[in-house]
Design a protein around this nucleic acid. Structure first.
Lengths: 367, 367
DNA sequence: TGCTGGCACTCTTATCTTTCGAGTGCTAAT
DNA sequence: ATTAGCACTCGAAAGATAAGAGTGCCAGCA
């Protein structure tokens, strides 16, 4: 289908790149000067005219320059654009930002989102659609007569906890029995299979009359369902306002409002990552988006791997006029780094860790 | 100083309330009709003129109505406005929103922020300037030969954890010794006092040659410093764009950018809560703000108590033209609810908790 | 056949005027 | 002290004009 002459391709690319940079319709004259083609503006006009009737370009009004259509962007992204390598500095910045601290999953994601927003100057979104998690190990810590802590080690290597205050007292031995029965019955068990019956059975097995089993099981279900349902977040929303296409407050507001609802973000299609040069990057251009609010924006998503089969997505939202190549490269690199950091979680540089913290601390108390 | 005739007060209030509602300069004619005063517009013009020269009102240009100045708002907030009670529905909504789940400190705060933003239609900010926390109890859970979990119970009743992978193996007995020495030496100790020497001493006490003590101490320091430094967050930033005063994207952008940096939020003055009718609400009007970016906005803050001496602030940011009374009432109510939920953390309705979770779960799997 | 210069035409954007109206301040009368 | 009346000011909206950018097409040329 795509039987475009080399010259047409070149011109289309030039139009898109120029438009990405200037946000203004680009005309034949400019093209004749800037693009490396050694032809006159009249020739270019003819080509532009054809590209327009092919549906790759459009003109806002009769006497304006050309603007890429969604189809134009699509073609550009799929076939025309070249994926640039990141500059050393940028790569280094990403590396250091991600390598900084080995914190929890969520904080890491948040940081990555902020980083992506900073680097691309577009709002960044992160969603971890971590598959179905299970508990690998239960621990109950007896604090005092009425208090204990539930500690769950999940198969995704996350640790979750909850402090429980009781209106009655409980003994350490009881907790030991309880944790034993939880470990025996609910390790590796998915959220859906933690049924009332099984809880009841466990309850009876240790003769638990105070409903402690149900408390622990309840927290487990809550935790699993929470990490099962995709967590979504957005950062750097204010950056939208920098884009000329969002000078109209109504537009900006509609999009920002849409984005700030995590429920909407989770609806983004997180499968079918194969386009854009083999890397795990996906580009949704304007009307390709299902959500009405995203129809004149584009979304670029990169998949990362969180180890243990879990995966998530980090991406940015911007006007259709985005520097797809640069943004895709950055996101891809960030996603890769994230995968490394999360999957290779085991590789905490342990020696010297304590010292590191100490020196950091010193600096802080100075300031 | 404030020797205003009753009529002037009434007029000033009327101007402010009208302006709050309409966002447009208000003139003498409208006032003559709406305000309950039985005088003509000419009389009101005279009064307006005086209020203007007193500095409480200003006119954008010679032939426009009057607009309140910061001083006008201040007077209104301090003396004129009446604190309305919340409607039953609103109170109920806040109660149910806060009582919903008894989660962690941070999540609770996030939820409260979202609630405040939704209820007031202004961006909400939350900051927990939790004083200096200490560890109340250390636990180390042995997972497998190379892995253990650090569990810290803080004096604020928060529980923090970290999964540690080791490049060498460690025995359960070692961990027991380590936790004993940590508990003995670092319970109730502030971040600043966890010095290298003390860590070294502890290390020697249990003959720890692998630096495990440092690892645990490092995490402790990290945790304490993190919860010591105020955590700040913002939600509902998009709502700003709804306000007429932020139709100019540049203004909106400047403020939103400012707000999205947590570091800036923490700089808000969180002391001196005494104005506005005895409740713990503080109003910063326009130029009263130190930050340049907040100079033509107002901030309303309400203090909440997180138990154990810790406290935080929840508030909203909006144009100086804010419905101070309503917003203050809402924030105050939310803050009170938050205090109750956090301080009275002990009062988890325990019986039936497990069942509750189960039914919730059922609903989810249905959809 | 394909490219180029030239030229008339179109349509937006910016700028400048004009008009309209709301609101004021002042004065004279009650 | 309050009010009615009136001239005046000034911004916002509407209309008019001018400028400029870009197109499409045609005729001539390799």
């Amino acid at each position: 289908m795509t039987r475009l002459s080399d010259r047409k391709k070149k011109i289309l690319s030039a139009v898109i790149e120029e438009y990405i940079a200037s946000a203004e319709p680009v005309g034949s004259k400019l093209l004749a000067e800037k693009a490396g083609l050694r032809v006159s503006s009249a020739t270019i006009r003819n080509e532009l005219s054809e590209l327009t009737s092919l549906g790759y370009l459009a003109q806002p009004h009769t006497s304006a320059g050309r603007v890429p259509t969604a189809a134009g962007y699509r073609l550009y992204v799929n076939e025309l654009m070249e994926q640039p390598d990141l500059s050393r500095e940028e790569a280094a910045r990403i590396d250091s930002s991600l390598a900084g601290k080995a914190q929890g999953h969520e904080q890491m994601l948040d940081d990555a989102g902020r980083l992506a927003a900073d680097l691309t100057d577009y709002p960044a979104l992160t969603l971890s659609s971590q598959g179905s998690d299970t508990v690998r190990r239960f621990d109950l810590i007896h604090v005092d007569a009425n208090t204990f802590i539930i500690v769950l080690l999940l198969s995704s290597n996350q640790v979750k906890n909850k402090l429980v205050h009781l209106p009655f007292s409980v003994e350490e031995a009881q907790l030991r029995r309880l944790s034993a029965v939880m470990n025996a019955n609910f390790c590796g068990v998915g959220e859906a299979e933690i049924t009332g019956e099984r809880i009841y059975a466990a309850e009876r097995a240790i003769d638990d009359r105070m409903g402690l089993t149900a408390v622990v099981a309840g927290f487990t279900i809550e935790t699993l369902s929470q990490s099962h349902g995709a967590r979504a977040a957005i950062s750097g929303g204010a950056k939208l306002l920098r884009q000329p296409e969002f000078q109209d407050p109504a537009k900006a507001h509609s999009l920002m409002d849409y984005l700030s609802d995590a429920a909407h973000l989770s609806e983004l299609p997180c499968d079918g990552f194969d386009c854009a040069g083999g890397t795990d990057v996906k580009v949704l251009i304007g009307p390709e988006n299902v959500a009405e609010e995203l129809r004149d924006s584009s979304v670029i998503l990169a998949k990362y791997d969180a180890g243990d089969g879990m995966q998530g997505v980090i991406g940015v939202v911007g006007p259709t006029r985005m520097d797809y190549s640069k943004v895709a490269a950055k996101l891809s690199y960030i996603a890769a780094g994230l995968s490394r950091a999360l999957a290779g979680n085991a590789g905490n540089a342990l020696p010297g860790f304590g010292k590191l913290m100490l020196t950091e601390k010193k600096e802080k108390s100075d300031s």
